[in-house]
């Protein structure tokens, strides 16, 4: 038990550090996408930049807007961070302190709880922009959650396991990305929409909602929301590398695809996004499952 505690704490701390440097990577990558340099002054080549950002955000004062619900407003970013961190206990390393037979189930449960925190952040901050952004984010996330679960189920049908480490080991002889490539591309679009990232970032459409659901948050609260978002991105990349390939190192290209999509794709349209989720992704993923079931009977 004490081993598990130590390994959990080390995982969480390293994830927070990884999130910090992932934001640096994003700023650098976006800089070079736009033919500028990005952060390069602080310390050696701008490497300690995320630590300075964190320090700045934590020392900013935390203003709560008038008539906002104070305790939910304060607690929501923390809950978001707690959910994002507690997902990382599933980290599928081979040096385990605990094996979870239903690990994928835990992943689905926690990632679906994230919707509540987005909605709470928008609703409690007593701002119209925040509320609109939160409602949009909620509708988008729950729409894509159905498809995400169905795609995960497709790969789980192949491995007959729900434990993520077992999924990895079953995938290791042949990568499942080669099995049905269109589904993998669809999975990529789904995880972009699920984490509210560009080109599907309607939760914070800058052109119409200024900053979306997190508009009233400044200082440490904003830092928590930011850390939770990037931690979710890294978790989704990790899930991709476990489900589609078997090596954890493949999560790095997926995380870079997130940045690449942000750097190169324009924002989608909201009604088209919803139509894509319900009219093309959902029937398609159901049809693949229907096609798979007789095959599973034969083999």
């Amino acid at each position: 038990m004490i081993q598990h505690l130590i390994s959990t704490i080390i995982t969480y701390l390293l994830i927070l550090l990884g999130v910090a440097f992932f934001t640096l990577l994003e700023r650098k990558a976006l800089g070079y996408f736009q033919i500028r340099k990005g952060p390069n002054k602080l310390g050696i080549m701008g490497i300690p930049q995320p630590l300075a950002d964190a320090l700045k955000l934590f020392t900013k004062e935390w203003v709560t807007p008038n008539f906002s619900n104070y305790f939910p407003f304060i607690l929501t970013p923390t809950i978001m961070l707690i959910l994002a961190l507690s997902m990382w206990q599933l980290f599928p390393s081979f040096m385990l302190t605990s094996q979870m037979t239903l690990g994928m189930f835990l992943f689905l449960c926690i990632s679906s709880l994230t919707v509540y925190t987005t909605l709470m952040a928008g609703w409690t901050s007593n701002s119209k922009y925040a509320l609109l952004g939160a409602i949009r984010a909620m509708a988008q996330t729950i729409s894509y959650e159905v498809t995400m679960t169905l795609i995960i189920m497709f790969y789980l049908f192949l491995t007959m396991e729900m434990d993520i480490v077992s999924v990895r080991m079953t995938n290791s002889p042949i990568w499942t990305i080669t099995l049905f490539f269109p589904l993998s591309v669809m999975w990529l679009a789904v995880i972009l929409a699920e984490t509210n990232r560009a080109p599907f970032d309607f939760a914070e459409g800058e052109s119409e909602l200024v900053s979306g659901f997190n508009i009233e948050y400044g200082g440490a609260g904003f830092a928590f929301l930011f850390m939770a978002e990037y931690s979710n991105i890294l978790m989704m990349s990790l899930m991709t590398s476990c489900l589609l390939t078997s090596t954890l190192i493949m999560s790095i290209p997926v995380a870079i695809i997130f940045l690449w999509a942000r750097g190169s794709l324009p924002r989608y349209r909201y009604d088209l996004l919803m139509a894509m989720a319900w009219k093309s992704f959902l029937p398609f993923s159901l049809a693949t499952l229907i096609a798979l079931t007789p095959l599973l009977f034969y083999f």
């Binding site: 934590f58 935390w62 707690i82 440490a220 928590f224």
Partner: peptide, 15 residues
């Protein structure tokens, strides 16, 4: 961890 960070943030960010 979250509550520790929250307390730190509230103390440093007092308005």
């Amino acid at each position: 961890l979250g509550i520790i960070l929250l307390v730190v943030g509230l103390f440093l960010g007092v308005s």
